[in-house]
């Protein structure tokens, strides 16, 4: 028999590679355009003149942006820490005990912020906070963020605990470690990659949130996404591109770290 010009590749489907390229192009081209024009010297986001970092300098010197950035990082840090602690406790409660009735219900409650559409959560929180008259400024935003960051922190921690052999904790108990020592010397160090991954995701989710913050934040509690949104509504300038690019950069760095960390764990 004559061999074809190319051997028959069982796995190959013609055109699938092209579609994959389209997919990645669709995902990344807009972002490239955004970043590209943030370096434009002229005040235009469609006609390129020459390379410049002016818009970054302007953005960094802008008090409103600095205030919003400070708020964003403050909120993200507090929300991440509290969500991660609560999520770790919840993950221990739902994995390190024999199955009990209502466990599925527990999962549903913890993950409920994932299931409810953001816009619904946003208006619900707005109504609720104005009803009880809670006016903590940035504090309101922090509470809201902690709630919806919780499931994002919870899921990787629970996954890690699920994959962890209980024999290790029993071995520690067998070697005279009391429950606190067992937790400190065995459970916690083993759990750390899950906690770090969960915290990273919670941080990014908090940093990225727009809708809920928009509804809940009072005047002084503006975060970066809320600021960007207000600027976009007013008109597009390379300064907005610059701020957006920086926010994008932070998210990408954190996500990359989380992914790298998980990869290091599995190998």
């Amino acid at each position: 028999m004559m061999a074809g010009p190319r051997t028959f590749d069982l796995k190959r489907y013609p055109g699938f590679g092209f579609i994959a390229a389209v997919c990645l192009g669709l995902l990344y081209l807009p972002l490239f355009v955004l970043v590209f024009f943030s370096f434009n010297e002229r005040r235009s986001v469609s006609n390129w003149s020459e390379f410049s970092l002016d818009w970054y300098a302007k953005a960094l010197a802008n008090d409103a942006i600095r205030q919003a950035a400070t708020n964003s990082f403050l909120v993200a840090t507090v929300a991440t820490i509290s969500a991660t602690i609560l999520a770790t406790a919840a993950a221990l409660a739902t994995t390190r005990v024999p199955r009990f009735r209502g466990l599925t219900g527990c999962y549903a409650v913890i993950n409920s912020p994932l299931m409810v559409p953001e816009i619904v959560t946003a208006v619900a929180l707005l109504s609720f906070l104005s009803l009880i008259g809670l006016e903590l400024g940035v504090g309101n935003v922090m509470i809201a963020h902690t709630v919806f960051c919780l499931p994002f922190a919870y899921l990787p921690i629970r996954a890690r605990l699920h994959g962890m052999d209980t024999a290790l904790e029993q071995a520690a108990a067998d070697l005279y470690a009391d429950p606190v020592q067992t937790f400190r010397h065995v459970t916690l160090p083993m759990l750390m990659p899950g906690i770090v991954a969960g915290a990273a995701l919670a941080f990014v989710i908090s940093l990225d949130d727009f809708i809920i913050t928009q509804m809940v934040a009072s005047a002084g509690a503006t975060t970066l996404p809320v600021y960007i949104y207000s600027q976009v509504r007013m008109g597009v300038t390379p300064e907005v591109n610059a701020v957006s690019s920086m926010l994008l950069g932070v998210s990408i760095v954190i996500v990359s770290l989380a992914v790298l960390l998980r990869k290091k764990e599995t190998t």
Binding site: C23, L24, L27, Y28, L29, P30, L31, V33, L34, F37, V45, S46, L201, V204, I205, L207, D208, F210, P225, I228, Y229, V232, V236, V240, N241, S244, L247, L248, S251, I252, V255, S256, V259
Partner: peptide, 23 residues
Amino acid sequence: FLVTVPFWTNLLVRTFSMMLILR
């Protein structure tokens, strides 16, 4: 990894970048 990154990046910024494309 390339598909995952947009999954976790800011939806507002991504939507804004699409605005720039379609202007």
